[in-house]
């Protein structure tokens, strides 16, 4: 019971993990993109549409990746090149993404993921690691998407903390003027990471529509994009901590079904509030204790304009 619950929490947390990692990269470049929900919806609908029409799982993934990056491109042009307000641009992207997914998705309502794709995204034991007691069952008997999530977290962690390019990126987010003076191409750096971040959000969305549900449902993301934005703060912009946060919230997401099964006397609607309430509580607590590691990149949310230094 507990092991199956934990394994299910990992599955429910995987879309959050992708989106959180995406937003971490974006924010590390100094861009606060509040369009995560919109980019996830764009990825979810594009991945699903291409998956259903072509029956090719890899094409579906590519479509979700590109759709997320496409949404991020709009945000990047507006905030990096045209220096528009980041908060409002992100909100606009969420509204646009909601419209986009409704527009494309209307003909998809009720459609189910073809068996070919279901088989491709079926859980399989990860060689060797699945033999670890308990952990093997919880973490390493999952589908390839989940493994991809682990890999993404590790790759991003190494990139940020152990490579020169990652250091450049952090410099861009912390002090763009200094990074510019050091010869780092600010615009290129910001564009690349905002786009990559959006692509990861798109993949997270596609996990929901292609594997988690797996059928088309309007507004399939249901606020998870916003929870991911909060998880970035919870994880203190650290990709490894993002894994823990995402799975914790995955657990909160599914706890309702489990509690219902036990006959515990609590209304389902209150249990449904849990992830949202927990997000609020976590944000308040992190803001109360101001530790040094919990501060966002210094240049976050501010457009950089060389001539205005």
């Amino acid at each position: 019971m507990t092991v199956s619950f934990l394994a299910a929490a990992v599955v429910a947390g995987t879309p959050l993990l992708f989106a959180t990692l995406g937003e971490i990269i974006t924010e590390k470049a100094g861009n606060l993109n509040l369009g995560v929900e919109g980019m996830m919806l764009m990825g979810a609908v594009s991945g699903f549409y291409v998956g259903v029409t072509t029956n090719q799982p890899l094409l579906a993934l590519a479509a979700a990746f590109l759709a997320g990056a496409g949404g991020a491109l709009i945000f990047a042009v507006l905030t990096i090149s045209l220096r528009a307000n980041q908060v409002v641009s992100g909100l606009a992207l969420t509204i646009f993404g909601t419209g986009f997914s409704g527009f494309i998705g209307q003909k998809l309502i009720g459609q189910v993921v073809p068996n070919n794709l279901k088989a491709f995204f079926k859980p399989f034991p990860f060689p060797l690691l699945n033999r670890i007691p308990i952990l093997g069952e919880v973490l390493f008997s999952q589908d390839m998407f989940v493994y991809l999530g682990y890999a993404a977290a590790i790759v991003i962690g190494v990139y940020l903390y152990k490579t020169r390019l990652g250091m450049n990126l952090r410099a861009v987010g912390e002090n763009p003027a200094a990074a510019d003076a050091a010869g780092i191409n600010i615009t290129l750096n910001k564009y690349l990471h905002v786009l990559l971040g959006g692509a990861l959000c798109g993949l997270g969305g596609a996990y929901l529509s292609l594997v988690y549900v797996p059928a088309w449902q309007e507004n399939v993301i249901a606020g998870r994009g916003w929870i991911a934005v909060a998880l970035v703060i919870f994880a203190a912009w650290n990709p490894y901590k993002a894994v823990i946060g995402a799975f914790l919230f995955g657990g909160l997401d599914i706890i309702g079904f489990r509690i219902q099964g036990t006959g515990f006397p609590v209304s389902l609607y209150f249990v449904d509030m849990l992830p949202y309430l927990a997000t609020i509580v976590i944000l308040v607590i992190t803001s109360m204790k101001k530790s040094r590691e919990n501060v966002p990149p210094k240049g976050l949310g501010v457009s950089y304009f060389r001539e205005e230094r």
């Binding site: 509204i95 909601t98 419209g99 997914s101 409704g102 527009f103």
Partner: peptide, 9 residues
């Protein structure tokens, strides 16, 4: 109907 939303965005 989401066309309106798309247009707004």
């Amino acid at each position: 109907e989401s066309t309106a939303l798309l247009l707004q965005g």
